[in-house]
């Protein structure tokens, strides 16, 4: 992997010589668009995290409606269903990560995924789950779109103030909708 352009959100979180490349929203949009088998993983913070026009979960639903498969981690599922949105799957985060280390596994059984995007997951647990994928799922790429730099991902947004993150997220969704 390239670059060390940002420092991990958690001080002392430097894992080693290989760290994520920092991501701009326009690059994120491109990477997502060229991915053949992406999934978006929505974690338990999706309700309490706010983006510009409401809770993150609504943002994810809008995005999901563009066609990207959404995996709701177990604690999130009920809220998606309440909003009339059925995610492609719902699994425990640990269960999902474990299966992603198997290159023969996929949500629909139609071949391995190539990009896993994470949103709304608490920093410390996400950092560890990304570490699993970094070492043991080399067939796929990972992207963290929380506003906190996750060095164990392949690509991560850098550390950002809340307002800046909200703007970038809005820009990202707009770009994805336009294409």
């Amino acid at each position: 992997m390239i670059t060390i352009a940002a420092s991990p959100w958690q001080i002392g979180g430097t894992p080693g010589p290989t760290e994520a490349a920092t991501l701009k929203p326009e690059t994120a949009a491109k990477l997502i668009q060229i991915a053949k088998r992406p999934i978006l993983v929505a974690g338990s913070l999706t309700l309490e995290t706010k983006v510009s026009n409401g809770p993150l979960i609504d943002f994810i639903i809008e995005w999901g409606k563009l066609g990207i498969p959404v995996v709701a981690t177990k604690p999130t599922l009920k809220e998606f269903l309440k909003r009339g949105f059925k995610p492609s799957a719902s699994m425990g985060l640990s269960d999902l990560i474990n299966r992603l280390t198997d290159p023969t596994w996929s949500l629909d059984g139609n071949g391995a995924h190539d990009l896993i995007i994470f949103l709304g997951i608490r920093y410390p647990i996400l950092s560890q789950m990304l570490s699993t994928l970094k070492h043991f799922a080399q067939n796929l790429r990972t992207m963290s779109l929380n506003g906190f730099f996750q060095p164990n991902a392949d690509w991560s947004f850098p550390n950002m103030k809340e307002e800046e993150w909200k703007e970038k997220m809005a820009f990202l969704l707009k770009t994805l909708k336009e294409k």
Partner: peptide
């Protein structure tokens, strides 16, 4: 085991 290294070194 499914491992999540805390440090790569």
């Amino acid at each position: 085991p499914t491992y999540s290294p805390l440090c790569d070194m």
